[in-house]
Design a binder for these strands. Structure first.
Lengths: 215, 215
DNA sequence: AGGAGTCCGTTGCATATGCAACCATGGAGG
DNA sequence: CCTCCATGGTTGCATATGCAACGGACTCCT
């Protein structure tokens, strides 16, 4: 368990001893779930968030039509529900379900922000980590919105690829396959493929598999 | 100044005396800017965030083509740059410019999260407020992304309107005019108007000005 | 009254894109 | 070697939508 938490962004830069220590302040409230079991249910309030210790869980949304939309997948070490807890929502707009037998560590907002009686200085680090987590998600959503806000697939691709170039350099790999990229940019896979072909044809970009270059 | 801060989400639920007190811990670092002057410049690191005390500032992004995209407008009491600071970015992807003569209160991350020497308990409140701010923005972006991820304007409208209905009830007003709604949903104003007309025609919805109802 | 400005609906047209279907390639595993 | 499966490129077609232009209703100001 400590090894998992060391990889968790919420416990970033903490060693095993520090985590041991802070776990006592946090209450160490753990629970096991069976496959398919609901962890949070749409419509509930959100008094605590979770950290997945083992297994796999999914954030899902049930549509009016009865369908289920997969919002995101959570892997061991990841936190989920943090935004809802920090925003203090009284009605969860999504459900969280175990995709496998899973173990969850639950943390309450008060436990996170209160400087504990033990006056442990790691609290400050963990608060910083929580702020970082929310802020990074924010920037990620911001950038995605920025890409999608362009009306044509070509413009979406260009804004995305320019961003990747700025981060990784002249020749860069993208971490998504074609289908994932199409989903990410809210476009049809075949239409995206077509547009990529055209752009290569016109000499705007060059690519091979997942390696790209803007010309 | 205290009156402005009382309206600021970062100082939520604090009275004038508490704000006075916490300001001393925060350093009270203020600065005046003239119209057009840059407050943060694209490419800089982000060591501190700002709270607008008076005036107006804009978040802008310069495009490759030399154009300027207005990302968002900041009004007195609002914080800006918080996400970049909390995420610890070393390269700001946007610029912040004064749209009017403005006064800014600057706060550093360390000042926000460190329990101050004065051991003032308001720190905990402020940290909660910062978490809430980031989390709420998160949920806002999430919902917008959810609307936009639908491929047709009709579906975008439906998901948006259903959400508003869930929040406000059977008959609800939307806070955006047609042009703002079109921008928000990343659609063309005339196309959106056309689709609204069709939906009313088909008896799916009814509306008059900004008052809507789903049938 | 007249003029300017804002907001919103309407329409004709070109086209970008979703959709469905099919094929090619390459890797994994028997 | 063969089969199965995942990935991704291609294409025909219908249509949703961006774009540009215009007109009506309304407010505000002189």
């Amino acid at each position: 368990m400590i090894e998992i938490l060391q990889k968790s962004p919420l416990f970033r830069r903490m060693d095993a001893g520090e985590i041991q220590h802070i776990l006592r302040c946090l209450g160490n409230h753990r629970k096991q779930y069976r496959r398919q079991e609901y962890i949070f249910l749409e419509g509930e309030p959100a008094p605590r968030f979770g950290i997945l210790l083992s297994g796999a869980v999914q954030i899902i949304k049930e549509t009016k039509a009865g369908g289920r939309i997969l919002i995101s997948q959570i892997f061991p070490g990841d936190a989920f529900g943090l935004s809802y807890v920090c925003a203090g929502v009284s009605y969860l707009p999504i459900s969280v379900q175990a995709a496998d037998r899973s173990e969850i560590l639950f943390i309450e907002l008060e436990q996170l922000v209160q400087t504990c009686q033990n006056a442990c200085r790691f609290h400050v680090d963990m608060i910083k980590n929580a702020l970082r987590l929310l802020a990074e998600k924010n920037l990620f959503l911001d950038s995605r919105l920025y890409y999608i806000s362009h009306k044509t697939i070509r413009e979406r691709l260009q804004s995305y690829l320019e961003d990747q170039e700025a981060r990784q350099g002249k020749e860069f790999d993208i971490p998504l396959n074609r289908e994932e990229l199409a989903d990410f940019l809210c476009a049809d896979r075949s239409a995206l493929s077509r547009e990529l072909g055209r752009m290569k044809q016109e000499g705007i970009i060059d690519y091979h598999k997942n390696s790209f270059r803007i010309l």
